[in-house]
Design a protein around this nucleic acid. Structure first.
Length: 282
DNA sequence: ATGGCTTGCACCGCAAGA
C-alpha cells in the first residue's frame, strides 16, 4: 500500500476468467433482476466463469421458490433471503467450500427492515456479504431518505464485521457510482440518483473503514460499466454506470490478482441489465 | 423529450427499477 488509507498503485490489467493452481477463490457479484427468469444464465455463467462464490441480488422470489436443487445439481450450495416481487439476495458457494450455518446473517442486525437486502456468510474463513443497496429513486424522496438510513446502518455493521473478521468482502449492487469516471455522461447525470454527494460520501465512508475497491486496484479500460438501461439501446451505446462493486479488506486486496466486469452475459438473450463483477484471490 | 425496456402482479395497466 502506498500513501493514504485505501490508496493503491494500480496493477496491470488481467484477462477474464483467470485460471491456475495459484488461484484459491474467485468471488463474484451479480444483480440478476429475477432469478426465476435468469436461472439458466446463472447456471451457464457459473460454468463459464468458474467462480467459487457468486453473490446474487434482486432474486424477486420467495424462499420457497428458490432453485436450490438446480444449483445443488451443479455442485453449489446456497444461502438466501428472498422476498416476493422485490429485492432478495443470495450467496452461492461451491459445495467443496466450508460454511458454518451459524455464521449466516440475514439483513443488517439491529436495522428493522422488511426488505431483504443483505446476507452474509463465512466461506472457507472469508467473510462475504451479498448486498442490494436501495435504489433511492431520486434525491429528496422518501426512498432517498431510506437509502441514506440504510447506508448509515450498513456502515456501522461493516465496522463491527471488520472488528470481528480479518478477511471481509462486501459485494453487491451498491446503486452508487463512486466517481465521475464510473459514469458514461457525468454532465447528464449530475445531481441524479447514484451520483449525489450524499451517496458518494457513504461509499467513501466504507473506503475510509479501510476497504479497497477491487476494481480500482488494477489498471482498467476506460468507460467500463456494470449496468446499462434496457431502454434507448444503452448497452450498444455503452451508456452505463459502474454501480456493482467488490470491496475488500487490505488482507484480501493483497491476495487479489484480478478484478473484471464480465459483459458476456449482458449480450445473451433476455439478459439482466447488470453485468457480473469478479474478484480473483490467490 | 422524465419517455424509452423489463420485471412481477394481477387482471390487461400498474409500480419499480436505475
Amino acid at each position: 500500500m502506498a500513501g493514504q488509507k485505501g490508496q493503491y498503485d494500480p496493477l496491470p490489467f488481467r484477462t477474464p476468467y483467470p485460471q491456475g493452481p495459484d488461484i484459491e477463490m474467485k468471488i463474484a457479484t451479480w444483480n440478476v433482476n429475477s432469478l426465476k427468469i435468469r436461472l439458466q444464465h446463472v447456471l451457464d455463467w457459473l460454468e463459464l466463469s468458474g467462480v467459487d462464490v457468486l453473490c446474487l441480488q434482486e432474486l424477486k422470489l420467495t424462499d420457497d421458490k428458490y432453485p436450490k436443487a438446480e444449483l445443488q445439481a451443479k455442485g453449489y450450495n446456497s444461502w438466501f433471503a428472498g422476498q416476493k416481487t422485490y429485492n432478495g439476495v443470495a450467496i452461492i458457494a461451491r459445495d467443496t467450500l466450508e460454511v458454518n450455518e451459524v455464521t449466516v446473517v440475514r439483513n443488517i442486525p439491529g436495522f428493522e427492515d422488511a426488505q431483504q437486502r443483505l446476507i452474509a456468510a463465512t466461506i472457507d474463513g472469508v467473510r462475504i456479504a451479498s448486498a442490494y443497496f436501495p435504489n433511492g429513486q431520486a434525491p429528496g424522496t422518501e426512498k432517498f431518505a431510506y437509502k441514506l438510513q440504510w447506508l448509515a446502518a450498513l456502515h456501522d455493521w461493516v465496522k463491527s464485521e471488520l472488528a470481528a473478521h480479518g478477511d471481509f468482502a462486501l459485494t453487491g449492487d451498491y446503486n452508487v457510482a463512486p466517481e465521475d469516471r464510473d459514469v458514461h455522461d457525468p454532465m447528464a447525470w449530475e445531481g441524479q440518483i447514484h451520483v449525489t454527494p450524499e451517496e458518494r460520501a457513504a461509499f467513501r465512508g466504507l473506503i475510509d473503514l479501510g476497504l479497497v475497491d477491487a476494481f480500482r486496484r488494477f489498471e482498467q479500460p476506460e468507460k467500463l460499466f456494470s449496468w446499462w438501461d434496457y431502454r434507448m439501446l444503452a448497452f450498444r451505446r455503452n451508456a452505463g454506470l459502474r454501480i456493482d462493486h467488490i470491496l475488500l479488506t487490505p488482507s484480501l486486496a493483497q491476495r487479489c490478482t484480478a478484478c473484471e466486469i464480465d459483459k458476456t452475459p449482458r449480450r445473451w438473450e433476455q439478459p439482466s441489465d447488470h453485468a457480473p463483477v469478479i474478484a480473483t484471490l490467490a
